[in-house]
Amino acid sequence: MNVYLQELKMYRKSLITWTIALVVLVVLILSMFPAIAKDAQLLNKLLSAFPEGIQKALGLTTLDLSTVLGFYSFVFIYVLLVGSIQAMNLGTSILSAEVRERTADFLLVKPINRSRIITYKLLAALTNIAITNVVYILAAKLMMDIVKKAPYDTKAFFLVTFTLLFLQLYFIAFGIAVSVFFKKIRTVLPISLAAVFGFYIIYLLNQTLHDAKLSYVTPFAYFEPAYIVSNVQYDVTYVAVAVGFFTVFTIVSYGIYTKKDIPAI
Protein backbone atom coordinates (compact mmCIF):
# COMPACT_ATOMS: atom_id res chain seq x y z
CA MET A 1 0.00 0.00 0.00
CA ASN A 2 2.86 2.37 0.84
CA VAL A 3 4.36 1.95 -2.63
CA TYR A 4 0.98 2.70 -4.21
CA LEU A 5 0.55 5.92 -2.25
CA GLN A 6 4.14 6.91 -2.92
CA GLU A 7 3.62 6.47 -6.68
CA LEU A 8 0.42 8.51 -6.60
CA LYS A 9 2.38 11.28 -4.96
CA MET A 10 5.24 11.01 -7.43
CA TYR A 11 2.95 11.30 -10.44
CA ARG A 12 0.53 13.87 -9.05
CA LYS A 13 2.03 16.74 -10.98
CA SER A 14 2.11 14.86 -14.25
CA LEU A 15 -1.47 13.70 -13.69
CA ILE A 16 -2.67 17.26 -13.19
CA THR A 17 -0.76 18.53 -16.23
CA TRP A 18 -1.99 15.85 -18.61
CA THR A 19 -5.57 16.04 -17.38
CA ILE A 20 -5.62 19.80 -17.85
CA ALA A 21 -4.11 19.35 -21.31
CA LEU A 22 -6.87 16.95 -22.33
CA VAL A 23 -9.61 19.15 -20.92
CA VAL A 24 -8.22 22.26 -22.62
CA LEU A 25 -7.94 20.31 -25.87
CA VAL A 26 -11.55 19.14 -25.88
CA VAL A 27 -12.83 22.55 -24.80
CA LEU A 28 -10.89 24.29 -27.56
CA ILE A 29 -11.91 21.84 -30.24
CA LEU A 30 -15.57 21.73 -29.32
CA SER A 31 -15.76 25.51 -29.03
CA MET A 32 -14.96 25.60 -32.74
CA PHE A 33 -18.03 23.53 -33.51
CA PRO A 34 -20.61 26.34 -33.71
CA ALA A 35 -18.50 28.16 -36.29
CA ILE A 36 -17.95 25.00 -38.28
CA ALA A 37 -21.59 23.88 -38.04
CA LYS A 38 -22.63 27.16 -39.67
CA ASP A 39 -20.65 26.31 -42.77
CA ALA A 40 -21.01 22.55 -42.42
CA GLN A 41 -22.75 22.14 -45.76
CA LEU A 42 -19.90 23.89 -47.45
CA LEU A 43 -17.30 21.98 -45.47
CA ASN A 44 -18.88 18.59 -46.19
CA LYS A 45 -18.97 19.48 -49.86
CA LEU A 46 -15.39 20.63 -49.82
CA LEU A 47 -14.22 17.50 -48.07
CA SER A 48 -16.13 15.23 -50.40
CA ALA A 49 -14.06 16.72 -53.19
CA PHE A 50 -10.93 15.25 -51.58
CA PRO A 51 -9.53 12.07 -53.11
CA GLU A 52 -11.24 9.04 -51.64
CA GLY A 53 -8.00 7.78 -50.05
CA ILE A 54 -7.61 10.92 -48.00
CA GLN A 55 -11.26 10.93 -47.03
CA LYS A 56 -10.90 7.40 -45.78
CA ALA A 57 -7.68 8.24 -43.97
CA LEU A 58 -9.48 11.03 -42.18
CA GLY A 59 -12.47 8.83 -41.39
CA LEU A 60 -14.77 11.19 -43.23
CA THR A 61 -16.77 8.74 -45.27
CA THR A 62 -19.27 8.00 -42.54
CA LEU A 63 -19.08 10.99 -40.22
CA ASP A 64 -21.25 14.05 -40.66
CA LEU A 65 -19.45 17.16 -39.45
CA SER A 66 -22.65 19.19 -39.21
CA THR A 67 -23.76 17.20 -36.14
CA VAL A 68 -22.00 17.71 -32.83
CA LEU A 69 -21.45 13.95 -32.38
CA GLY A 70 -20.04 13.59 -35.89
CA PHE A 71 -17.71 16.51 -35.30
CA TYR A 72 -16.66 15.21 -31.86
CA SER A 73 -15.93 11.75 -33.25
CA PHE A 74 -13.96 13.27 -36.10
CA VAL A 75 -11.67 15.27 -33.83
CA PHE A 76 -11.59 12.69 -31.07
CA ILE A 77 -8.45 11.13 -32.57
CA TYR A 78 -6.45 14.12 -31.26
CA VAL A 79 -7.73 13.45 -27.77
CA LEU A 80 -6.77 9.82 -28.24
CA LEU A 81 -3.28 10.74 -29.38
CA VAL A 82 -2.65 13.01 -26.39
CA GLY A 83 -4.17 10.49 -23.99
CA SER A 84 -2.11 7.69 -25.50
CA ILE A 85 1.10 9.63 -25.03
CA GLN A 86 0.14 10.29 -21.42
CA ALA A 87 -0.50 6.60 -20.82
CA MET A 88 2.56 5.39 -22.70
CA ASN A 89 4.74 7.85 -20.76
CA LEU A 90 3.30 6.67 -17.49
CA GLY A 91 3.64 2.99 -18.34
CA THR A 92 7.17 3.27 -19.67
CA SER A 93 8.30 5.38 -16.78
CA ILE A 94 6.69 3.89 -13.71
CA LEU A 95 9.01 0.88 -13.31
CA SER A 96 12.04 2.24 -15.12
CA ALA A 97 12.11 5.41 -13.00
CA GLU A 98 13.65 3.50 -10.11
CA VAL A 99 16.70 2.67 -12.22
CA ARG A 100 16.77 6.06 -13.98
CA GLU A 101 16.56 8.01 -10.75
CA ARG A 102 18.87 5.44 -9.15
CA THR A 103 16.45 4.66 -6.38
CA ALA A 104 16.24 0.95 -7.22
CA ASP A 105 18.87 0.22 -4.58
CA PHE A 106 16.55 1.83 -2.09
CA LEU A 107 13.24 0.26 -3.05
CA LEU A 108 14.28 -3.24 -4.10
CA VAL A 109 16.22 -4.03 -0.93
CA LYS A 110 13.12 -3.45 1.14
CA PRO A 111 11.22 -6.49 2.37
CA ILE A 112 8.86 -6.57 -0.58
CA ASN A 113 8.96 -8.82 -3.60
CA ARG A 114 9.08 -7.48 -7.10
CA SER A 115 5.65 -8.73 -8.17
CA ARG A 116 4.16 -6.64 -5.41
CA ILE A 117 6.09 -3.63 -6.60
CA ILE A 118 4.72 -4.06 -10.12
CA THR A 119 1.20 -4.57 -8.78
CA TYR A 120 1.29 -1.41 -6.69
CA LYS A 121 2.81 0.61 -9.49
CA LEU A 122 0.35 -0.73 -12.02
CA LEU A 123 -2.51 0.13 -9.67
CA ALA A 124 -1.13 3.64 -9.23
CA ALA A 125 -0.93 4.07 -13.02
CA LEU A 126 -4.49 2.78 -13.43
CA THR A 127 -5.68 5.17 -10.75
CA ASN A 128 -4.06 8.05 -12.60
CA ILE A 129 -5.75 7.02 -15.82
CA ALA A 130 -9.10 6.60 -14.09
CA ILE A 131 -8.90 10.10 -12.63
CA THR A 132 -7.93 11.56 -16.01
CA ASN A 133 -10.91 9.86 -17.63
CA VAL A 134 -13.47 10.93 -15.06
CA VAL A 135 -12.38 14.56 -15.35
CA TYR A 136 -12.17 14.38 -19.12
CA ILE A 137 -15.60 12.80 -19.54
CA LEU A 138 -17.22 15.42 -17.33
CA ALA A 139 -15.55 18.23 -19.25
CA ALA A 140 -16.36 16.74 -22.65
CA LYS A 141 -20.02 16.06 -21.78
CA LEU A 142 -20.45 19.54 -20.39
CA MET A 143 -18.87 21.08 -23.47
CA MET A 144 -20.95 18.94 -25.83
CA ASP A 145 -24.12 20.13 -24.13
CA ILE A 146 -23.00 23.73 -24.36
CA VAL A 147 -22.21 23.73 -28.08
CA LYS A 148 -24.85 21.31 -29.39
CA LYS A 149 -27.44 22.64 -31.81
CA ALA A 150 -29.66 19.58 -31.64
CA PRO A 151 -29.93 16.54 -29.32
CA TYR A 152 -27.34 13.83 -29.93
CA ASP A 153 -27.06 10.14 -29.08
CA THR A 154 -25.65 10.19 -25.53
CA LYS A 155 -24.89 6.48 -25.57
CA ALA A 156 -22.82 6.83 -28.73
CA PHE A 157 -21.01 9.76 -27.14
CA PHE A 158 -20.06 7.72 -24.10
CA LEU A 159 -19.06 4.73 -26.21
CA VAL A 160 -16.73 6.92 -28.26
CA THR A 161 -15.39 8.68 -25.18
CA PHE A 162 -14.69 5.46 -23.25
CA THR A 163 -12.27 4.42 -25.96
CA LEU A 164 -9.86 6.93 -24.42
CA LEU A 165 -9.80 4.77 -21.33
CA PHE A 166 -9.34 1.55 -23.32
CA LEU A 167 -6.53 2.96 -25.40
CA GLN A 168 -4.84 4.31 -22.29
CA LEU A 169 -5.08 0.92 -20.61
CA TYR A 170 -3.47 -0.63 -23.67
CA PHE A 171 -0.60 1.88 -23.63
CA ILE A 172 -0.03 1.56 -19.88
CA ALA A 173 0.43 -2.20 -20.30
CA PHE A 174 2.46 -1.77 -23.48
CA GLY A 175 4.67 0.88 -21.88
CA ILE A 176 5.45 -1.28 -18.86
CA ALA A 177 6.18 -4.27 -21.09
CA VAL A 178 8.53 -2.20 -23.25
CA SER A 179 10.30 -0.76 -20.21
CA VAL A 180 11.18 -4.13 -18.68
CA PHE A 181 13.17 -5.07 -21.80
CA PHE A 182 15.52 -2.13 -21.39
CA LYS A 183 18.38 -2.21 -18.94
CA LYS A 184 18.08 1.51 -18.39
CA ILE A 185 15.85 4.11 -20.05
CA ARG A 186 17.35 7.56 -19.96
CA THR A 187 14.43 9.50 -21.37
CA VAL A 188 10.90 8.22 -21.69
CA LEU A 189 9.30 10.70 -24.05
CA PRO A 190 11.03 9.65 -27.30
CA ILE A 191 9.96 6.06 -26.70
CA SER A 192 6.36 6.97 -26.04
CA LEU A 193 6.17 9.36 -28.99
CA ALA A 194 7.66 6.74 -31.29
CA ALA A 195 5.27 4.06 -30.07
CA VAL A 196 2.13 6.19 -30.23
CA PHE A 197 2.85 7.80 -33.59
CA GLY A 198 4.14 4.52 -34.99
CA PHE A 199 0.82 2.88 -34.22
CA TYR A 200 -1.04 5.94 -35.47
CA ILE A 201 0.75 5.91 -38.83
CA ILE A 202 0.01 2.22 -39.26
CA TYR A 203 -3.61 3.05 -38.51
CA LEU A 204 -3.68 5.85 -41.10
CA LEU A 205 -2.10 3.63 -43.72
CA ASN A 206 -4.58 0.91 -43.03
CA GLN A 207 -7.49 3.30 -43.50
CA THR A 208 -6.74 3.00 -47.19
CA LEU A 209 -5.24 -0.49 -47.25
CA HIS A 210 -8.05 -2.09 -45.25
CA ASP A 211 -5.86 -4.99 -44.30
CA ALA A 212 -7.58 -6.93 -41.50
CA LYS A 213 -4.34 -8.37 -40.16
CA LEU A 214 -2.71 -4.96 -40.01
CA SER A 215 -5.68 -3.59 -38.13
CA TYR A 216 -4.98 -5.99 -35.26
CA VAL A 217 -1.48 -4.54 -34.95
CA THR A 218 -2.49 -1.01 -34.10
CA PRO A 219 -4.73 -0.21 -31.13
CA PHE A 220 -6.07 2.86 -32.91
CA ALA A 221 -7.97 0.54 -35.24
CA TYR A 222 -9.75 -1.28 -32.42
CA PHE A 223 -12.26 1.41 -31.58
CA GLU A 224 -13.12 3.22 -34.79
CA PRO A 225 -15.27 6.27 -33.90
CA ALA A 226 -17.10 6.10 -37.25
CA TYR A 227 -18.02 2.46 -36.60
CA ILE A 228 -19.14 3.20 -33.04
CA VAL A 229 -21.28 6.17 -34.05
CA SER A 230 -23.10 4.31 -36.80
CA ASN A 231 -23.51 1.01 -34.89
CA VAL A 232 -23.68 2.35 -31.30
CA GLN A 233 -21.57 -0.59 -30.13
CA TYR A 234 -18.01 -1.85 -30.15
CA ASP A 235 -16.62 -4.44 -32.53
CA VAL A 236 -16.37 -7.48 -30.24
CA THR A 237 -13.42 -9.04 -32.08
CA TYR A 238 -11.29 -5.97 -31.51
CA VAL A 239 -12.33 -5.72 -27.88
CA ALA A 240 -11.13 -9.31 -27.44
CA VAL A 241 -7.85 -8.49 -29.19
CA ALA A 242 -7.34 -5.46 -26.94
CA VAL A 243 -7.99 -7.50 -23.80
CA GLY A 244 -5.65 -10.19 -25.12
CA PHE A 245 -2.80 -7.76 -25.70
CA PHE A 246 -3.32 -6.15 -22.30
CA THR A 247 -3.10 -9.55 -20.63
CA VAL A 248 -0.03 -10.66 -22.58
CA PHE A 249 1.82 -7.39 -21.93
CA THR A 250 1.06 -7.61 -18.24
CA ILE A 251 2.17 -11.23 -17.91
CA VAL A 252 5.38 -10.52 -19.84
CA SER A 253 6.10 -7.54 -17.56
CA TYR A 254 5.73 -9.58 -14.40
CA GLY A 255 7.72 -12.47 -15.84
CA ILE A 256 10.68 -10.41 -16.92
CA TYR A 257 10.81 -7.85 -14.14
CA THR A 258 10.84 -10.44 -11.37
CA LYS A 259 13.84 -12.18 -12.95
CA LYS A 260 15.73 -9.13 -14.05
CA ASP A 261 19.16 -7.97 -12.86
CA ILE A 262 19.03 -4.45 -11.51
CA PRO A 263 22.09 -2.63 -12.89
CA ALA A 264 24.45 -1.00 -10.42
CA ILE A 265 24.52 2.79 -10.37
Binding site: M10, E101, R102, T103, D105, V109, K110, P111, I112, I265
Partner: peptide
Amino acid sequence: PEIRREIGYLPSEVFYY
Protein backbone atom coordinates in the same frame (compact mmCIF):
# COMPACT_ATOMS: atom_id res chain seq x y z
CA PRO B 1 11.62 -10.34 1.05
CA GLU B 2 11.47 -12.21 4.35
CA ILE B 3 15.23 -12.01 4.89
CA ARG B 4 15.39 -8.34 3.98
CA ARG B 5 13.16 -7.44 6.94
CA GLU B 6 16.23 -7.87 9.09
CA ILE B 7 18.80 -6.33 6.75
CA GLY B 8 19.95 -2.75 6.67
CA TYR B 9 21.82 -1.74 3.54
CA LEU B 10 23.88 1.31 2.79
CA PRO B 11 24.96 1.45 -0.86
CA SER B 12 28.20 3.11 -1.93
CA GLU B 13 26.31 5.79 -3.81
CA VAL B 14 23.07 7.00 -2.36
CA PHE B 15 20.17 8.37 -4.34
CA TYR B 16 16.70 9.16 -3.12
CA TYR B 17 13.52 10.58 -4.57
